[in-house]
Amino acid sequence: MKAKIALLLLLITVHLGAQDNNRNEVKTVVDDFIQAMNQQDTKTLLTLMDRNIGFMTVFFDGKKSILAAESVEMFIENIESTSPGMIKEELLNYKITASDALATVWSEYNFYVSGSLSHCGENAFQLYKSPKGWRIIQITDTRYNKEKCRIKTPTDKYERKATLIKFIDNWHRAASKAEMQPYFNAMSDDAIYVGTDPDEFWTKPQFKAWAKSYFEDGKAWHFETIKRDIFFTDDEDLAWFNEKLNTSMGTCHATGVAVYTRNGWKIKYYQLSVTVPNELLEDFLELKNSTNVKE
Rank of each mutant, 00 (worst) to 15 (best):
150 R>E: 13
151 I>D: 14
152 K>D: 08
153 T>A: 11
153 T>N: 13
153 T>W: 08
153 T>Y: 08
153 T>R: 14
155 T>L: 15
155 T>V: 12
156 D>F: 03
156 D>G: 08
156 D>R: 04
156 D>M: 04
157 K>V: 11
157 K>T: 12
157 K>P: 12
157 K>I: 14
157 K>D: 12
157 K>E: 14
158 Y>W: 09
158 Y>P: 00
158 Y>H: 14
158 Y>R: 10
158 Y>F: 09
159 E>M: 13
160 R>A: 15
160 R>P: 06
160 R>M: 15
161 K>E: 15
161 K>D: 10
162 A>S: 10
162 A>M: 07
162 A>W: 01
162 A>E: 13
163 T>K: 10
163 T>E: 13
163 T>R: 05
164 L>D: 05
164 L>Q: 01
165 I>G: 00
165 I>P: 00
165 I>L: 14
166 K>V: 07
166 K>D: 13
166 K>H: 14
166 K>C: 06
166 K>L: 12
166 K>Y: 08
166 K>I: 08
167 F>R: 05
167 F>C: 06
167 F>D: 07
167 F>G: 06
167 F>Y: 14
168 I>V: 14
168 I>S: 07
168 I>H: 04
168 I>E: 07
169 D>L: 04
169 D>W: 09
169 D>Y: 10
169 D>P: 03
170 N>M: 01
170 N>A: 11
170 N>G: 01
170 N>Y: 00
171 W>L: 05
171 W>N: 03
171 W>E: 00
171 W>F: 07
172 H>L: 09
173 R>I: 04
174 A>S: 15
174 A>Q: 03
175 A>Q: 02
176 S>A: 15
177 K>V: 06
177 K>E: 15
177 K>D: 13
178 A>I: 05
178 A>K: 05
178 A>E: 05
179 E>M: 15
179 E>N: 14
179 E>I: 06
179 E>S: 14
179 E>C: 10
180 M>E: 13
180 M>H: 06
181 Q>W: 02
181 Q>R: 11
181 Q>M: 09
181 Q>T: 12
182 P>A: 03
182 P>Y: 01
182 P>R: 04
182 P>M: 03
182 P>S: 03
182 P>L: 01
183 Y>G: 04
183 Y>K: 08
183 Y>D: 03
184 F>H: 04
184 F>K: 08
185 N>R: 11
185 N>L: 05
185 N>F: 04
186 A>P: 07
186 A>W: 08
186 A>T: 10
186 A>L: 12
186 A>V: 07
187 M>E: 05
187 M>R: 04
188 S>K: 05
188 S>T: 10
188 S>I: 06
189 D>V: 03
189 D>K: 11
190 D>K: 08
190 D>M: 01
190 D>R: 04
190 D>I: 02
190 D>G: 01
190 D>W: 01
191 A>Y: 00
191 A>K: 02
191 A>H: 01
191 A>N: 03
191 A>R: 02
192 I>F: 03
193 Y>L: 14
194 V>T: 10
194 V>W: 04
194 V>P: 00
195 G>L: 08
195 G>S: 09
195 G>V: 12
196 T>G: 11
196 T>K: 11
196 T>A: 13
196 T>H: 10
196 T>M: 14
